[in-house]
Design a binder for these strands. Structure first.
Length: 492
RNA sequence: CGGGAUGUGGCGCAGUUGGCUAGCGCACCUGGUUUGGGACCAGGGGGUCGAGUGUUCGAGUCACUUCAUCCCGACCA
């Protein structure tokens, strides 16, 4: 039988697409650019959601929900914001269908035209700030620290499962503060939460940094981000946290009475991560055998496959494996007993590897007799016998090791693909090889645009916690002075 | 919206210069033998060839139109 997954090395895009489909994560839908997230894929997303949500709660945030539809006029209140999103909005113009008078089927009822068109939210700043206006009168009403879990629509020209779909799931935090300092602190705090989540749960090494002016969120004064590197050397923006200044407060006239009795505009932030994180997870760790899930996000951490002959022996195995399962559950480890009788064990091995389950136990009569189980690690593909005695504790320890190993491997890869480049000639050669290029840049939007035009490389971020190189040098493109290096890369 | 390609059972494909009953692999169903790395044997079901028009005695195959999808650009979390 042919391999389910094509080789990463042959065609990274095709490999990625096949993997997503074969591992039962998602598939394209009948609607252009949209995606069906299948139960297994959604289970991973739910793990992410729950972890992120608890981290948001721990930092004082609460959840709320705002409308899907945004009056067109709201979007245009903030000039840069509308410019950034206008080209990719889905617009609702009518509210009723009718029978086609000239044939069969239905047509849009021309009499049901909306007075004002509604935009399906590409992001919720405008509708939320229009709401916050009513919530905020005094400094005593601040801060407001809300998050919403929602879907948004951005009508992209070209889509790719998880990484860029016309509709996607995400969370968006929107906060309101009395002072700029407090809002900036919030922006920094939340990008820190994202970095923590990416590193410790997704096992994804990320660089925290500032976006350049050209890459900044439409309407923000500053955008902080986490940037990751995929196994093909391309960069992926995995999360953003924006300091919005008073732009939205001014656009929606949100003022509050300060302690001194004067009126001030509110300071705002917004921050979000999306199902794109699923794409990052898949592309960062998977190999040619399929998905590799970090234990912290694996819906199933341990799968047990019985080896048996006949009903009677299967029943015995079930009983034996259930005891192992109970011990695992007692330590908070999720497991699955794959007792399907209609597929062979070899098939099961391959299938669970494809789905990225971190640990597999194979148990047959000869293991029981010897007081061992066969244990296979997904991350290293090693397998060997482990004593039945103390098995659950051993696995608990092992899951931590696997989590760390996956992170270390990704980090080592990223470091190996990151290098300093000092001349324009060298830059043009190196960018073709992929990876992060640490370069001096004169800080201008124009230079960044020209470099992008000529090489398709963008400034991923001005790093603040990894690859920080504060040194004077000359811009690789213009030769003008520069005080630090920034990260250039091609990106998704 | 520009450049390129592809549409044939659920999926992946073959189908020579138009020709007879449209094939193959995987998957599926039935029976049996198997079961420690994606089993094997036998039997079986399922497609009018993206859609439309035309040329022809005859079209999966040729022409035109149209739709859809994918890739490369522009756009992007």
């Amino acid at each position: 039988m042919a391999k389910e997954v094509t080789n990463r090395e042959d065609n990274y895009s095709l490999w990625y697409n096949n993997l997503v489909v074969k591992a039962d994560l998602a598939e394209t839908s009948a609607v252009r650019g949209c995606m069906v997230i299948k139960p297994y894929g959604y289970a991973i997303w739910e793990k992410m959601q729950h972890q992120l949500d608890s981290m948001f709660k721990a930092t004082g945030h609460v959840n709320a929900y705002f409308p899907l539809f945004i009056p067109k006029s709201f979007l245009s209140r903030e000039a840069e914001h509308v410019e950034g999103f206008a080209k990719e909005c889905a617009v609702v113009t009518h509210h009723r269908l009718m029978k086609d008078p000239n044939g069969s089927g239905v047509v849009v009822d021309p009499d049901a035209k909306l007075e004002e068109e509604l935009v399906v939210r590409p992001t919720s700043e405008t509708i939320i700030w229009n709401t916050y206006k009513n919530w905020i009168k005094s400094y005593r009403d601040l801060p407001i620290l809300c998050n919403q879990w929602a879907n948004v629509v951005r009508w992209e020209m070209r889509t790719r499962l998880f990484l860029r779909t016309a509709e996607f799931l995400w969370q968006e935090g929107h906060t309101a503060h009395a002072t700029a300092a407090e809002a900036i602190a919030e922006t920094e705090k939340m990008v820190g939460v994202y970095a923590d989540f990416a590193r410790n749960y997704m096992a994804l090494p990320v660089v925290v940094g500032h976006k350049s002016e050209g890459e900044r969120f439409a309407g923000a004064l500053d955008t902080l981000c986490i940037e990751a590197m995929m196994q093909d050397g391309k960069a992926l923006q995995a999360g953003t946290s924006h300091f919005l200044g008073q732009n939205f407060a001014k656009a929606f006239d949100v003022q509050f009475a300060n302690k001194e009795g004067g009126l001030d505009y509110v300071w705002a932030t917004s921050w979000g991560v999306s199902t794109r994180l699923m794409g990052a997870l898949i592309m960062a760790h998977s190999d040619n055998n399929g998905l590799v899930l970090p234990p912290a996000l694996a819906p199933i951490q341990v799968v047990m496959v019985p080896i048996y002959k006949g009903e009677e022996e299967l029943a015995k195995m079930r009983e034996y494996m259930q005891k192992v399962g109970d011990e695992l559950a007692a330590l908070g480890i999720s497991y699955k007993i794959d007792d399907r009788d209609n597929v062979r064990s070899g098939f099961k091995f391959a299938e669970w590897e494809l789905k990225g389950v971190p640990v597999r136990l194979t148990i047959g009569q000869r293991d029981i007799d010897a007081g061992v189980v066969e244990l296979a690690r997904r991350d290293t593909l090693e397998k060997g016998a482990v004593q039945r005695e103390g098995l659950a504790a051993h696995i608990k320890d092992l899951l931590d090791k696997i989590q760390k190993n996956i992170y270390d491997k990704a980090l080592a890869f990223r470091d190996s693909q990151t290098r300093k480049v000092d001349t324009w000639e060298e830059f043009k050669v190196e960018i073709e090889k992929g990876g992060f290029l640490l370069c001096h840049w004169d800080g201008s939007k124009e230079t960044e645009a020209k470099i992008q035009e000529e090489t398709k490389a963008t400034i991923r971020c001005i790093p603040i916690d990894s690859y920080v190189v504060e040194e004077s040098g000359k811009c690789i493109y213009t030769g003008k002075p520069s005080a630090r290096r920034v990260i250039f890369a091609r990106s998704y």
